[in-house]
């Protein structure tokens, strides 16, 4: 807004310089420039409004159609033996929780460790570090279906082609999550003032202790919000899960073995493989979509609030 104001202010300022010598056409050109500026600003504002329209309409659709099955049964039962109305998504919710949890277990420690290496240990301008950074960039661009194929081939190599499991899904999602964690952690670690590290070293602390007890705690809020953003991004991934954890109608608590339902795949199957009572399938798909969006929204909100809440507490 201030930028806008500045732009608008420039022509007016020019009017203050002696205009006596200037002819009318200059003034006209200036006021035309002013109008042009305003029109352009309005167009940009329009674009800003335009992006809100699909978002609001999407939310409206999901909420209005999803509410149909937001009931107790939906959250307490699976689809085991259900062919028509009724049934629920508990198995998919549990599956998504387990797969996401395992993904975090893999990608958070490795991601933070890699970021610590890049910011704290790698010498500035180190070849190896720029290699790692490049690889992370490449990883960011891996299509999720390819991550799924990779996880699939890795596990099927050892356990045979029919192997499906939650842990394989977690591996695929970790590949997608890792670059997010590394990048965001690296960014916040770079924001930790160098002074603090020096203060730690000057107290006679080892470098790794300073990282562990000074640098990481100072960066924690930012790290958490980066991780939450990453989770929000992968929790809706469908393609790799279709490949490696598959469909399941019944509850499977064991992530190491067997097909495991998940919310995105649940939505897909309800929508795609409708039974006779199509409406019941539609309703379940929309309700699962609503749950998924609510989770993402909560995660995004938590990512926003985490830094402030953690700082406020201390």
């Amino acid at each position: 807004m201030t930028q806008l104001d500045n732009q608008l202010a420039i022509p007016e300022l020019q009017l203050d310089v002696p205009v006596v010598h200037e002819d009318q056409s200059v003034l006209k050109a200036q006021s035309r420039a002013l109008i042009k500026d305003k029109v352009i600003a309005a167009l940009f504002a329009l674009a800003a409004v335009a992006i809100a329209i699909p978002l609001i309409s999407l939310l409206w659709t999901v909420v209005s159609r999803g509410l149909a099955r937001i009931d107790a049964e939906f959250f307490t039962s699976s689809m085991k033996g259900v062919v028509g109305a009724g049934g629920g998504a508990l198995h998919a919710i549990v599956g998504t929780l387990e797969i996401t949890g395992l993904t975090l277990l893999v990608s958070v420690p490795i991601g933070i460790a890699a970021a610590v290496f890049l910011t704290e240990y790698a010498a500035p301008g180190s070849r190896f570090a720029s290699c790692v950074r490049f690889l992370v960039d490449v990883m960011t661009g891996i299509p999720s279906i390819v991550a799924g194929l990779f996880a699939y081939s890795l596990f099927s190599l050892v356990l045979g082609p029919a192997y499906r499991s939650g842990i394989a899904a977690a591996l695929a999602l970790s590949l997608l999550m890792l670059p997010v964690v590394i990048r965001s952690t690296e960014e916040v670690l770079l924001l930790v003032p160098h002074d603090l590290r020096e203060a730690g070293w000057a107290l006679g602390a080892e470098k790794h202790t300073v990282i562990w007890k000074v640098v990481l705690p100072a960066a924690l809020p930012g790290v958490i919000s980066g991780v939450l953003n990453g989770v929000a991004r992968i929790i809706g991934e469908t393609a790799p899960l279709l490949l490696v954890s598959g469909f399941a109608d019944a509850m499977n608590y064991n992530p190491l073995e067997g097909r495991m339902a998940s919310l995105p795949v649940y939505i897909y199957t309800q929508w795609q493989m409708k039974g006779l009572d199509a409406q019941a399938y539609d309703d379940r798909a929309w309700s699962a979509a609503l749950v998924l969006i609510a989770v993402v929204a909560v995660l995004a909100l938590a990512a926003r609030l985490a830094p402030r809440l953690l700082k406020g507490k201390k």
Binding site: P193, D195, L196, A199, A202, L203, V214, A218, K314
Partner: peptide
């Protein structure tokens, strides 16, 4: 040999 810096730098998380 301890050290105190130009800019006071207490650990913010402590």
């Amino acid at each position: 040999v301890g050290m105190v810096f130009q800019k006071a730098n207490p650990f913010p998380s402590m």
